[in-house]
Design a binder for these strands. Structure first.
Lengths: 155, 155
DNA sequence: TTCTAATTATCAAGCGTTTGACAGTCGCCA
DNA sequence: TGGCGACTGTCAAACGCTTGATAATTAGAA
């Protein structure tokens, strides 16, 4: 009986759940992502396109499967995006020199130009946010976020 | 001619794009979300379910449309989740006292119990992350994230 | 060499979400 | 009292991603 009482002892779920850091993290990411999508829309580009192209730009010749791992999505999702971007002439698939079955991903000149325009928008969003934080706050925030990511990944 | 040169002047897209704060924000959120999903899976609950139920718990009687706005999704997405959770007996729709067409959302006792179990998991993840940051780092991070969210939302 | 294991890419099906459109309901104001 | 506007909830279709399964190709071991 005593056990039953303690069990049902009006133990409401903590309401401070929305004060948690991971909740604030979600809210911030959602807000930033929404802003990026909004600013990218006039360029006819989605945030996912920008992310993919920037990744390919940083590491030319990347394979689809490897790219999928880095972006935390499935290879099919990558293939879908690549097919679309290839259709627009922004991206191209080349045959891997050693592995004939593998295809390297490269940006076309048009793709580089589109990426440049998109990156200007993203850089502007970044500036808008960091302006409010100041130089110290920005570096502090980046360091804290990196620690969070590392900690969560090695859990 | 000079203009043309400056235009094509090998102006590669900045490679420090992955050093940006908003990039670190994305990585951190992705890692934390993945960890939450992984820990929540054994309970048969997705992160979206937890988020919805916690929102309803914090503000009982919330309408679907209002909930959709807070979570940055469409009303249909909410309706889909609600229907499922209602089918499991965790959530119930009640008729709004004044607006007959509107339906209030409330947790059932079973829903409260499921939420309690899920929240224990989430709180554990939160603890795992904040342990590494320390008390000061945690409050600092939360403050910075809230400023970022506010800044991005009022852009 | 031959065979196994690992990796890549792709196809088909299912699920969840968004987009677009529509009907029901209430508040407000002429 | 009647009508306009805003909001809520729902249906249908399209889109994007995931899951599951299969074929192609290469590296390494027996």
């Amino acid at each position: 009986m005593l056990l039953h009482v303690t069990r049902n002892d009006e133990d409401p779920v903590a309401l401070d759940a929305l004060d948690r850091v991971t909740w604030a993290l979600r809210r911030a990411e959602l807000a930033v992502l929404a802003l990026k999508e909004q600013r990218l829309r006039p360029l006819g580009m989605a945030a996912a396109h920008y992310t993919l192209m920037m990744s390919v730009h940083a590491e030319p010749g990347l394979a689809g499967a490897e790219l999928a791992r880095r972006l935390n999505v499935t290879p099919q999702a990558i293939a879908s995006l690549v097919t679309r971007l290839e259709g627009r002439g922004l991206l191209e698939r080349r045959e891997h020199p050693r592995h004939r079955h593998v295809q390297e991903l490269h940006l076309t000149p048009a793709g580089r130009e589109a990426l440049r325009a998109a990156d200007a928008v993203i850089a502007d969003v970044e500036r808008h946010v960091t302006d409010d934080l100041g130089s110290d706050g920005t570096t502090e925030l980046r360091a804290l976020l990196n620690r969070v990511a590392k900690r969560a990944r090695e859990a």
